[in-house]
Amino acid sequence: MTDLDRLRNVLRHNEILGEILERVKVLGLPDWYLIAGCVVQTVWNVLTGREAAEGIKDYDLFYYDAADLGWAAEDRVIKAVAQVCGDLPVEVEVRNEARVHLWYEAKFGVPCPPFASTEAAINAFPAVCSCVGVRLEPDGRMHVYAPHGCDDLFALVVRPNDVLAPRVVFEGKVARWRRRWPELTVFTSG
């Protein structure tokens, strides 16, 4: 079994994640993925004997649509996702990755070049283990994007991805993650 097959199998333990994937699939969003936190936390929960969805407060859904970079277009997608997922006991946070460069520097203090795709945004996540996204294809197959593979994820290893995110973002995530998963091994350099 490959790591990607193993990831698919582990993620099936999180019924909420599966439900979001099924519901969002019907919206036909361009280049969409459930990403990073909900995926990583599901894996770590399962590997450490916790309930798969334990402590996951939000599920980040990224998509890419450069046709309209205005807030109103993104807000329409946010509302469409809320319409199909609003009865679930979690928040689904939606972001158009084509717009990130418009607000990133104000929030994080460093400029962000425009991303060319959702995959390019995933490549820039602060920790290597969190550079992962999943979606359901129209035929129901789970598509996984994991540019660094899943070795760190399954080994409970966290190391920085120095592509974009400021060091303070990485350190903040590590501090939160260590409180919940003391089993993690953290490296401070890639």
Rank of each mutant, 00 (worst) to 15 (best):
V168H: 10
D162Y: 00
A67N: 08
A73P: 10
L47N: 00
I20F: 09
R141G: 01
A155R: 13
D68N: 12
M1V: 12
P113N: 07
R23L: 06
F125C: 10
V46F: 09
D151T: 15
L184R: 03
D139T: 08
V128I: 15
G70C: 00
G149S: 03
L156I: 10
V157H: 14
I20M: 09
A155H: 02
R50N: 08
V81A: 05
L153H: 12
E15Q: 13
R8Q: 11
C85E: 02
A146I: 04
I122V: 14
D31M: 10
R95N: 06
V128L: 10
A72F: 04
R23Y: 14
A52M: 13
D58C: 05
V158W: 07
E97N: 10
L17K: 11
A53V: 05
G55P: 02
W32Q: 07
P111E: 01
R23P: 06
P138F: 13
P30H: 09
D60C: 12
D60W: 08
F154H: 09
G140R: 15
L102H: 08
N9Y: 01
D65N: 14
V186A: 02
H143G: 08
R176L: 11
R159V: 08
D65K: 11
P114W: 02
W103V: 14
Y33S: 04
L164P: 01
W32E: 09
F154R: 07
A82K: 14
W44P: 06
P147T: 01
K79G: 06
D87W: 10
V94D: 02
L102P: 03
G55F: 05
C129R: 00
D162V: 01
A146P: 08
G18W: 04
R76I: 04
P182E: 03
N14M: 14
K107T: 05
L164Y: 05
G49A: 07
A165T: 00
G18H: 06
V90D: 10
L61H: 06
